[in-house]
Amino acid sequence: MILQLEGVSKNFGGLRALSDVTFDLPEGQILGLIGPNGAGKTTLFNSISGVYTPTEGRVIFRGQDVTRNKPYEMAKLGMARTHQIVRPLNELTVRENVIAGSCFGREGHGLKAAGKIADEVLEFVGLAPRSDQLAGSLNVGQKKRLEMARALAARPYLLLLDEVLAGLNPSEIGHMVDIVRSIRDQGVTIIMIEHVMKAVMSVSDRLLVLDYGSQIAEGTPHDVANDPKVIEAYLGDPDLALRLMRDETRA
């Protein structure tokens, strides 16, 4: 198991954003994390990656208790993530962004070695022609790929992807899904939060469904899609039901 969560809960004041989340993630899998808006998905990412300290429960990463770790400690241990709302280092170039990912990530390379890795990774995500541009000047799709490149350059064991498909057009989505698959094929374990159902269904080995901070289902995409509890949770959110329908018609 690369990651184990044991009864992880997170409170904000009186509000319980996560309650008793427990799961094991085997190495080399893609775990899709789905659920209606406000279900606590990003909170779960933050609790795993050290941005938040869980109120209760334990997070175990590669056999080590990391519940109280800081984000930078998690990065050094081999966890990398992207953000739902992209956070490029705007005044640095694309290449410098990715170099930073490599320098401060798990392998902690020097600038030279990091530069090589950055060039490889930028080639891989298709941003090589923009290496010397300022990150702030990219469009949203490119910024998402930059986030991905930065996370990959850290050579993580576990990659947390927070809505990397949101806001992309259909051809970009296809491209990004290919990237995610080939990252998994290189042996990196992935957890991805996603609203684009078709994509997450097709790419995930397993799915975990959150609703109001609790996990209401876990299993293969097929099982989860037919789980009455999941359907109920989603129908309770007209926004999402609408989006799902739109996805269906588009496909």
């Binding site: 990656s49 941005v51 800081k70 984000p71 930078y72 990065a75 050094k76 990398a80 993530r81 953000h83 956070r87 490029p88 280092l89 705007n90 005044e91 640095l92 410098e96 170099i99 930073a100 990912g101 320098c103 401060f104 990530g105 798990r106 902690g108 020097g110 600038l111 990091a114 930065r150 850290a154």
Partner: peptide, 21 residues
């Protein structure tokens, strides 16, 4: 490399920490 870490903090301190700075 130290300086790159500082620049990352300047641009976005939380993102920099997540990256491992």
């Amino acid at each position: 490399k130290f300086g790159l870490g500082l620049l990352a903090i300047r641009e976005d301190e939380d993102a920099a920490e997540v990256m491992g700075v």
